[in-house]
């Protein structure tokens, strides 16, 4: 799991970094609602200097989905 991404996700969702893993989904995180999704998108765009589209955002409902979208945007992430 990429450490920088794990830190971002832990801060957005107010989770501990060790709780962030590739299998985590929206259904697992009680605080992951549409407002948090907005926080997530804005944070990722700022941190990685990318622009996310609505289809991208709709795929970002799991950590695996987020990783896929970021990689497609050219973001280098550790496994």
């Amino acid at each position: 799991m990429d450490k920088r991404l794990a830190l971002i996700l832990s801060e957005v969702f107010r989770l501990k970094e060790k709780e962030i893993n590739i299998a985590l989904t929206k259904a697992d995180v009680g605080s992951w609602d549409s407002l948090k999704q907005m926080d997530l998108v804005l944070t990722l765009e700022r941190e990685y200097n990318i622009l996310l589209t609505i289809p991208d955002i709709l795929r970002m409902v799991s950590v695996a989905g987020i990783v896929d979208v970021l990689r497609e945007k050219g973001v280098a992430l550790e496994d």
Partner: peptide, 12 residues
């Protein structure tokens, strides 16, 4: 309902 819901593709 939030003012903007980016998870609602039929109308955010």
């Amino acid at each position: 309902e939030p003012l903007v819901n980016i998870m609602k593709p039929e109308g955010i």
